[in-house]
Computed example of a mutant assay.
Amino acid sequence: MKIKVGYLVSYDYSMFLTSVKQLYNHVDKIVVAIDKDRKTWSGNTFDIPQSFFEEVKKYDVKNKIEFYFDIFYLPNLSPTENEIRERNMVLVKLGRGWKIQLDVDEYVYEFKTIAKYLKKYWYFTLFPKMSPICFKGKLVTLFKKLPEGYIYIQNDEKFPFITNQTSNTFGRNNDKIRKVYTNINVIHQSWARTNEEILMKITNWGHRDDFDTIKYFEFWKSLNSENYSDQKNIHPLYPEIWNKLYFLESNSIDDFVEKYAVINPQKLIYVDKILMLKAMLKKFKF
C-alpha cells in the first residue's frame, strides 16, 4: 500500500514547503502540478522563480517529489471546470494507492497518526473499482493574520480529500462514491495572507464568479483584534458554515501549527472495517 500526495501549485507556491514538511517523512510519493504556461484557472499569468525549484530540490533528500507540468488552463472552460480537470489529471498521475489531494496552503499536522490510520484500511487500495471510497477531514480555516497572531475558524466544515479513485465530479468531491468522516484536522491558511495575495486568490480561484469578491475583500480588510469576535456567519457562500471567529496568539504560521496541534491533537474516528466492507459489497452487489 502506498500513500501519495498531489499538490496544485501556482501563485501561492511559497506555502508549499510549510505544507509538505508536515507529511514528507510518512508518504511514498508527492506530485506537484504546475501549469506549463504559468496560467491560473482563470487564464491569468503567474510566475514562479527558479529559486523555488532549487529550494524544493534541496529539501527533497529522499527523492519523493515529482514536478508535473501540463496544460491545466483551457479558455473554453470555466475556472471551476479547469479546477476539476486538473485535479483529475493529478489523481491519474498519482496512480494506485491512497491519494491525498492538497492545496499548498493546507497543513495536515501530526501526519504520522494519519499514515497509521490509512494503513489500517490498506485493502481498499487493492481493487479500488470494487471499493470506491473517500475520506473526509475537517478544515481549520485561518482567516486573517494580525500582528499578534491569527484569527481562525474552528467548526464542522468537512471536506473530502483522501481517495482511492482517479476522478472527481466537483472540486475534490466525487458524489458517486461512499464518504467516510475521519475527524482529521487540516489547517487551511486560506485567507490569512497579505492584501495583494488575497486579491490574487479571489480573482483566480474556482469561486471567482460565485459572489461579490471585492465587497467581501473590503469586509475582510476591516477585521482587527477589537471587532473580530462580533462577526457571525461570515462564509461568502454558505454563511452559517463560518459561524464564529477565534484567535490564537502566534508569531508565524509554523508557530500557529505547533500551538494548535498541542491544543487539538489529531483524534481520528475509526470505523468498523467489516461493516464498511459489507456496505461496499452490498452497494455494488458483490
Rank of each mutant, 00 (worst) to 15 (best):
A33H: 00
I34D: 07
I34T: 09
K36G: 09
D37M: 06
D37A: 11
R38C: 11
K39T: 06
T40W: 00
S42N: 07
S42L: 01
S42M: 04
G43R: 00
G43S: 04
T45E: 11
T45N: 15
F46I: 01
D47L: 14
D47V: 14
I48C: 04
P49C: 02
Q50V: 15
Q50G: 15
S51A: 08
F52N: 09
F53S: 03
E54Q: 12
E54D: 14
E54C: 01
E54Y: 09
E54M: 09
E55W: 04
K57A: 12
K57C: 07
K58V: 05
K58T: 06
K58M: 06
Y59C: 02
D60K: 05
K62N: 10
K62Q: 07
N63S: 14
K64F: 04
K64N: 11
K64M: 11
I65H: 03
I65V: 13
E66I: 11
E66Y: 02
Y68N: 09
Y68V: 07
D70Y: 08
D70S: 12
I71H: 11
F72Y: 15
Y73P: 10
L74N: 12
L74Q: 13
P75M: 01
P75G: 05
N76G: 03
N76K: 08
N76T: 12
S78L: 07
P79N: 04
T80Y: 11
